[in-house]
Design a protein around this nucleic acid. Structure first.
Lengths: 208, 208
DNA sequence: GGAGTTACGCTACGGCTCGTAGCGTAAGAG
DNA sequence: CTCTTACGCTACGAGCCGTAGCGTAACTCC
């Protein structure tokens, strides 16, 4: 689903695109992000690392932003999951630490904000980020809420519209706080911070 | 303080730098951000807009990132303040809406995330962002907390280290949530959202 | 008022990246 | 075996970068 060229009509004739090239390019992109960062990463460099012609990159991705989104999205697919830790507090701490661990990687740290910045002027890019990365994160929030409701830790909401608004709010609070702590304040998200944050969030959810 | 070249030794001899040029350059930078966005903004273009030689820009700023930080910081200086609204809830709503209004401007929307992304690989740039923008925001949080404590809405904390940790947490939660809502979720921060967010935050602060 | 010092505008430049075009070749489908 | 598409390679014009060099402007100190 996070594959490079979202092929609505998977061409039935002609030479098929090489899956090895796809993997090599995405791997090379992540390696280049680690070594060079977003700013100095160039399409030509990625092509050379992947052992692939530059034109092959442009056949699959429109530009640097799209390529990097897919390269980073693969990491989110791999590492974002949410086992049941038994309580809402533990689940929140867990998702916070997982997300933070992802953000502290040099590949994502330098890339994620950059593509979000680009997306403010490019609706297609924003949609790509949303479906490849953001929606996956949000589903964890929804999962955690359902579990907490089943445990009786959170009240069930009757109005679906209000429930959606609350879920959006919680998502922005969790993801935003972790991103801000990591990238702007440049302080580590350690278990202690996660504990304090989860306590703050859950206290607010009960109080309202 | 947000002036261009932080001149520790304000040269006492020779021709002084033109303050008009400073202003023209920063104005031109903001205009270029609005029209072109971070990605397509170039030093040469800014110089042309400002009616200034390109070399003049490079005498003051090391590059695009530093220039844009100063151009955006001026906006924060102008628009970030926090009048006493009489209650913690109202103060939080107010600062959220002010910060969001700044972020929804096309200049800041496209620039802020970009320079933060760059700063992950450039410590000097991170320091510049911190002193020019972030610390100013944080002081509003500290101000709001002091007011709330004076009103008796929040308990006074004895341990200064713990108090600092709490303030940092609150700052990351507020700023992070607003940024994430605006730039990632791309949804408006309206009074209703601000009310819900403030209620969540304050509920959590009381609960702990 | 002259000497010294720094800023400014202008031009020009090598170097890099971009994104594309054109071509011959490789790999599948029918 | 033909058709179609992907691939590697080369080459290219265009644009931006950041700097050097020069003559001129503005201000300070003597």
């Amino acid at each position: 689903m996070s594959s490079a060229a979202s092929s609505p009509a998977p061409r039935r004739t002609g030479r098929p695109r090489s899956p090895e090239a796809d993997r090599a390019i995405l791997d090379a992109t992540r390696a280049a992000l680690v070594e060079l960062g977003w700013g100095k990463l160039t399409m030509g460099d990625v092509a050379a690392r992947a052992g692939v012609a530059k034109t092959t990159l442009y056949r699959r991705w429109a530009g640097k932003s799209e390529l990097v989104v897919d390269a980073v999205a693969a990491l989110f697919d791999e590492h974002l999951e949410l086992p049941d830790r038994g309580s809402l507090q533990a689940d929140v701490e867990d998702v916070v630490l997982r997300f933070a661990a992802l953000l502290e990687r040099p590949e994502t740290k330098t890339a994620l904000m950059a593509v979000v910045a680009e997306s403010t002027r490019d609706g297609a890019l924003r949609d790509r980020i949303r479906s490849a990365i953001v929606d996956r994160q949000k589903s964890l929030v929804l999962l955690g809420r359902d579990r907490a409701q089943r445990r009786g830790e959170l009240p069930r909401e009757d109005d679906p519209a209000a429930a959606a608004r609350t879920a959006d709010l919680i998502f922005d609070v969790i993801a935003g706080a972790v991103v801000h702590r990591t990238l702007v304040s440049a302080e580590p998200v350690d278990p202690e911070w996660a504990r304090g944050f989860a306590a703050l969030l859950i206290g607010g959810l009960r109080g309202s």
